[in-house]
């Protein structure tokens, strides 16, 4: 039974603010090992953009997912990461009692982002 990857995003009223995130998710989906591990990948938003997270979860389930692995695409912890996102998953668990839900760390905790900060800083420092 397939696992779904749910990318949970804050959302923004600014046009184009999600472009980079969608490009990251598209790059992820294009990796063969990711496609094998997560046949279903959905993006859901807290605010401002569609689909809202509950709808994105329902889409995962409609595509046959029996396990939904959610990752907050957030740089910082806060009320959304600590409380609101868990609440949305608990509500989804009630709607879909046969589906297992798991939640990963928000991506800001990853040392990968330290490497990215270092790369961005090095590029700027090297510019004339």
């Amino acid at each position: 039974m397939p696992d779904a990857l749910l990318v949970m995003v804050h959302g923004s009223p600014t046009a184009g603010a999600n472009d980079a995130m969608f490009a990251v998710v598209d790059a992820l989906k294009a990796r063969p090992e990711v496609a094998a591990r997560f046949p279903v990948v959905e993006v859901g938003f807290m605010e401002c953009n569609d689909p809202p997270i509950p709808e994105a979860i329902d889409r995962c389930v409609a595509q046959g997912a029996t396990r939904v692995v959610a990752v907050p695409y957030f740089l910082h912890t806060g009320t959304h990461v600590c409380d609101d996102l868990p609440t949305l998953l608990e509500e989804a668990q009630t709607r879909h009692p046969g589906v297992a839900f798991a939640l990963g760390d928000y991506i800001g905790l990853s040392p990968r982002l330290t490497d990215l900060l270092a790369a961005r800083a090095a590029a700027a420092a090297a510019s004339p």
């Binding site: 990318v7 490009a23 992820l28 990853s110 961005r120 590029a123």
Partner: peptide, 22 residues
């Protein structure tokens, strides 16, 4: 410097977070 924007590092962070989901 540039904001974080788009990079493989973000994709890797996402995937590793998913691998450790609880």
């Amino acid at each position: 410097a540039e904001a974080l924007g788009q990079d493989e590092a973000l994709a890797n962070a996402l995937l590793e977070s998913a691998a450790g989901a609880r």
